[in-house]
């Protein structure tokens, strides 16, 4: 069975995955049109697999913000593979391309959907970090809503005490999701707010505490130290916490996302990524490089403004979304 067939059957297995793949297809329609459209163009235009073909393929991948070095490595590997399998017709290379892309993401790991690491019957703490304007507070709102729908008792801590209106923004999300928000005034110490949040979550016997933090650019040493301090407070107050440190990345971000992942990881040991704003034309290809270089998996993707538009990430679905046109034609 070819790789593409495997993907197809995988998505026909259950209704649930069907639904997921539909969501992806809708949310990523724009990305898909341009990306796989281009690959199809490419394959139609170039019958032969030659230098020119690879050059153009390289551009298609770079246009998706896949890391430049990742693309270069991929192209090298593809060239080798083409030689090894003696592929001459571009039609035969489709399989190899998508296979390699999924391989970049997973490396040698088992291919599985990475879900949130939450404890049963005891408090789990999720710390949410990222640069300014990526959608931390919105993602928290959506996540809180979903966890609450699953029957979990959720508390939010308004740790962004810096940005104007940030506390109010989280409070509105708290109302929408019908969960408690623990806050102090603007300008107060974020570590103290988080501490209050932990106390409140414990006394209210909450299942999950989600901690918001102020957006910060990763090259601000003092602000990154502040984040480390917040994490230390969580570690001290709840053994084994934080159970998740989620880095929120904007899909429109280019190569700098790799720097973000690296530096935030150093400060807080990031355990997963939330890739937001994937409903535009940006493709967020940089997550392939991040997973490949730093072994940080994507756990959620933001595919729209509605609460239910925060979806669990599935690399196969991600690639499926990118390649859907090609699959359907094949």
């Amino acid at each position: 069975m070819s790789f593409m067939d495997k993907l197809k059957t995988r998505f026909k297995k259950t209704e649930e995955t069907e639904e997921v793949s539909t969501k992806y297809k809708e949310g990523m329609k724009k990305s898909r049109n341009s990306f796989s459209g281009k690959i199809n163009d490419l394959i139609a235009r170039y019958r032969k697999v030659d230098e020119e073909f690879f050059e153009e393929l390289e551009e298609v991948l770079i246009a998706a913000d896949t890391g430049v070095m990742t693309v270069m490595d991929l192209i090298d590997e593809l060239k080798m593979e083409v030689k090894r399998q003696n592929i001459k017709d571009t039609k035969d290379i489709k399989d190899v391309i998508s296979e390699k892309l999924v391989e970049i993401y997973y490396g040698d790991d088992d291919e599985e959907v990475e879900t949130l690491n939450l404890k049963e019957n005891e408090l789990s703490v999720i710390l949410v970090v990222g640069v300014n304007g990526v959608g931390k507070t919105t993602s928290i709102g959506k996540l809180a809503y979903q966890l609450k729908q699953e029957g979990k008792r959720v508390v939010l801590a308004a740790g962004d005490t810096f940005r104007a209106g940030a506390i109010e923004q989280l409070e509105i999300w708290g109302e929408r999701a019908d969960v408690d928000v623990i806050k102090q005034g603007p300008g107060s110490d974020p570590a103290a707010v988080i501490y209050d949040g932990i106390k409140a979550a414990k006394s209210r016997e909450a299942d999950v505490l989600i901690c918001d933090t102020a957006g910060r650019l990763q090259n601000k040493v003092n602000l990154m130290n502040e984040l480390t301090k917040v994490k230390r407070v969580i570690e001290r107050e709840v053994p084994g916490a934080p159970h998740e440190v989620l880095l929120v990345l904007d899909a429109t971000t280019g190569q700098n996302a790799l720097n973000q992942a690296k530096t935030f990881s150093e400060a807080t040991n990031v355990s997963g990524i939330v890739l937001t704003k994937l409903d535009g034309t940006a493709k967020g290809g940089i997550v392939l490089a991040i997973r490949n270089e730093l072994q940080i998996p994507v756990k959620f993707v933001g595919l729209g403004e509605q609460v239910e538009d925060l979806q669990k990430f599935d690399a196969h679905a991600f690639v499926y979304g990118l390649f859907a046109d090609m699959l359907e034609e094949a």
Binding site: I62, A63, A64, D65, V131, G133, D250, T252, T253, G254, Q255, N256, A257, G280, T281, A282, K283, I286
Partner: peptide, 8 residues
């Protein structure tokens, strides 16, 4: 945003 990638 100055960090925007190819989609800019």
């Amino acid at each position: 945003d100055a960090m925007t990638g190819q989609d800019a």
